[in-house]
């Protein structure tokens, strides 16, 4: 480990600032919140510098502090009750002989050939915008499982939800994201087929 790194925290900002900033944006989907979290991460790290034992790199240590800050942010958001109001999309029929079948206006369309699309920065940017529109608790649940790859137990414990509720939330998050990206990316050029 480079000792000048440890002795001079302001060099951390030049070296790892953009990494932490992008890391945070890809988990909270908001640049202003991400900047605050990065700021708090550096501040906490400087205050706790004597606890850094050099067993990991500075980058790993800073990332672990940021991860905790992100979870605290999720927990704070998860406490408010607005998800129930925001999550009002009806994807499936709720009554009649076709109960549980897709609503007509929610039927997935065929997106056709998507080779290479998963590596496109433009496609990710649209997806990130869709992620930023998810209700807060749903976004937190989705991100902890899909991106951070936390276990079901850890996610449920941190966000205070039941495992059944966790699957329903991730399921609904995915349905909303799919619909959102279909509308924003695939519909404008009309290359999809029903």
């Amino acid at each position: 480990m480079n000792t000048t790194d440890t002795l001079n925290p302001s060099t951390w900002v030049d070296k790892y600032g953009n990494y932490l900033y992008n890391y945070a944006i890809s988990r909270v989907y908001n640049q202003v919140i991400a900047e605050d979290l990065v700021q708090e991460t550096f501040y906490s790290a400087v205050k706790a510098i004597e606890r850094f034992e050099g067993r990991s790199t500075i980058k790993t240590w800073l990332t672990s502090i940021l991860k905790r800050k992100i979870i605290d942010h999720y927990r704070k958001n998860a406490r408010n009750k607005e998800d129930a109001v925001l999550d009002n999309d009806q994807f499936f029929q709720t009554e009649g002989i076709l109960k549980g079948h897709w609503e007509d206006d929610q039927l997935p369309a065929n997106w056709g050939d998507n080779k290479g699309l998963s590596e496109s920065a433009e496609f990710y940017t649209v997806l990130k915008e869709c992620l930023s529109h998810l209700p807060p608790k749903m976004a937190a649940t989705f991100t902890m499982k899909e991106i951070e790859e936390y276990s079901t137990e850890e996610t449920c414990k941190e966000l205070e939800i039941s495992p059944t509720n966790l699957w329903v939330m991730i399921h609904r998050a995915k349905l909303r994201l799919r619909k959102c990206i279909e509308t924003k990316w695939f519909l404008p050029d009309k290359t999809i087929h029903k």
Partner: peptide, 17 residues
Amino acid sequence: WLLDEEALLSDTIKNHK
């Protein structure tokens, strides 16, 4: 289609990571 499309979204997120 849903299965394929959700896989594309997962791959996109993983590639960005």
